[in-house]
Amino acid sequence: MNVGRFIQYIASGTAYTVSVSLIALPLGLFLGLIFSLLYVYGGKILTRIMSIYSTVMRGIPPIVLLFILYFMVSGSINLSAFWAGSISLGIISSAYQMEIIRGALLSVSGGQMMAARAVGMSRMGAIKHIIIPQAFRMAICPWSNEAAIVIKDSSLVYALGVPEILRRAQLISASTQQPFLAFIIAGVIYFVLVFVTNRLLDGLDKRLRIPANP
């Protein structure tokens, strides 16, 4: 048995895990931000549409959605499993991120909008310069939760055949008959990734915190 080589083999899937997360999270953030703005400021019809989107997307297990989106995406465009999986995870995450940002937008008091309008800002200007910067700060903590979930859920793309950490762990487990060791290695790598990410986001939260904010 060569534990060193197992670790090396499984760990070399980390690049995939990190890449999938680095595509899914920003994509989910971008879509989530737009969707949440439409939800909060878009008027009745858009609010309704976004509310349905959120309910449906959050009501189906990510793995099921991943397969549906994967076959939809790869059916229409010729994409690798890696890209199709990453984009699908980003779309799934957008529903959760939309709810996080929506909550943050709503927690900025209505007076801030009124004061911004009073100095002559347009509604769009007020949202951009006053509301979003404040909401963004409030969203960091709940967002770090979603970041952890996406990193862990990136393991789902193993079902599409992407050779990331979990996929490799399973191969090792099957070929060596040592599942415990293989999955422990995978677990430790995931834990370290999530731990470091949350630490970074905590640091960002502290750095951006508004001094003595009531």
Partner: peptide
């Protein structure tokens, strides 16, 4: 509104 200054009871400064 640019030409009308407004001061509110509860200040409403931009917190950030």
């Amino acid at each position: 509104r640019q030409h009308i200054g407004m001061v509110f009871q509860n200040f409403l400064l931009f917190n950030h």
